[in-house]
Each structure stands twice: as C-alpha cells, then as structure tokens.
C-alpha cells in the first residue's frame, strides 16, 4: 500500500485511475459498437424469417419504427417490437402483421420470466396460438379472447397478450394519423 496518504495524492491517484478507465471503456466501445448493432440486427432478421419464411430481405422504416420483410422487393407484411412488463422485467416481443391487420405471429425477443413457468412463453405451443388472430381476439380465453394462458403463468401469458394487442392498436393508430 502506498505511503503517501495525506494531501492531494489520493485524489489525484483516483482521478488518474478514472481517466484510464474511461479511456479503456471508450476503446472497447469503439471496437464492439458495430458488432453489437450487427448482432441485434441478426437476431431480429433471424426472428423475422421464422415469421415470414419466404422473405429474402427486409428494410427498416425508421419513421414508423417498422420492419418490412421483402420477397423480390415486394413487402410481405409489417413487423415491429412490442414491450410489456411481465412477472419479472420487461418482455420484448416481435409482432408480425399480414398486409391487412391480422396477426402473422409473434416471437419473444427478450424475457426474464420464471424458468419453468413464465419462461414457457417462448415455447411453440404458446406462440402457435397467435397466427391468424384478429386484433380483438388477442385476449386470454377467460377474457373472451382466443389465447389459452400457460398453466401457472397467467401473469406472463397475460403480459404477452395485452402487450401485443396494445402495441398493434397503438401502431395502427399512429399509422392512421399519418396517412
């Protein structure tokens, strides 16, 4: 341990350490920034292709925050990201719409629900209930909709369903206002 413990030396030392640390972080950020962006885009592209299997590319509409899957330059539908608080933390969902407003399907991008219970929202038996639903049917069965909740994980199921429905309504509202 250093012997010079009085005066300004500790302050200067700590400041120096902080500067070095900032420099190291700036450098790391510069190296990884593009990679991280790329990884996120890859992730979205991978999920889009499971919703729109015939797509051969996609564009991102920045103004409306929409992903537009394309096949031979023709749009196949629309997709966007919905977020809703689940049982623990935010669930982030990729919502795919047909060219009309029926649901193409959903994919879970990020969730931290209880393993073994709420985390089952990523499994296909739950997700396969969504394709083809009209906006008003995206509710849990007991609330008059057409989606069965996962046993023991009503909160997580409900969060997904409500998040998707609200996001679609909001998005359609937003698009309706602009055109």
């Amino acid at each position: 341990m250093g012997t010079r413990t009085n005066g300004f030396f500790p302050v200067i030392f700590l400041t120096l350490i902080v500067f070095i640390s900032v420099a190291a972080l700036t450098l790391t950020d510069a190296i990884t920034k593009d990679k991280i962006e790329l990884a996120k885009e890859d992730e979205i592209a991978r999920m889009l292709i499971t919703l729109f299997p015939q797509m051969d590319g996609f564009t991102y509409d920045e103004q409306n925050d929409l992903y537009i899957p394309l096949a031979e330059q023709q749009p196949l539908g629309r997709a966007f990201i919905a977020e809703q608080s689940g049982y623990s933390g935010v669930i982030s969902i990729l919502v795919g719409l047909e060219p009309d407003t029926t649901l193409r399907g959903i994919r879970i991008i990020f969730q931290q629900e209880t393993p073994g219970l709420g985390a089952k929202i990523v499994e296909s038996f739950f997700l396969q209930q969504f394709p083809g639903l009209a906006v008003d049917d995206i509710k849990l069965t007991k609330k008059g909709g057409k989606v069965d909740a996962i046993t023991g994980a009503t909160t997580s199921s409900s969060a997904v369903v409500e998040g998707v429905r609200k996001a679609i309504l909001d998005k359609l509202n937003q698009l309706g206002r602009e055109t």
């Binding site: 341990m1 250093g2 010079r4 413990t5 030396f9 500790p10 302050v11 030392f13 700590l14 350490i17």
Partner: peptide, 10 residues
C-alpha cells in the same frame, strides 16, 4: 502505489 484511504474506490 495505491493510497490506503482511496483503495476501495480504486
């Protein structure tokens, strides 16, 4: 070189 008083923050 670490001054004892600021070792934990460092």
């Amino acid at each position: 070189h670490v001054p004892v008083r600021v070792r934990i923050p460092v």
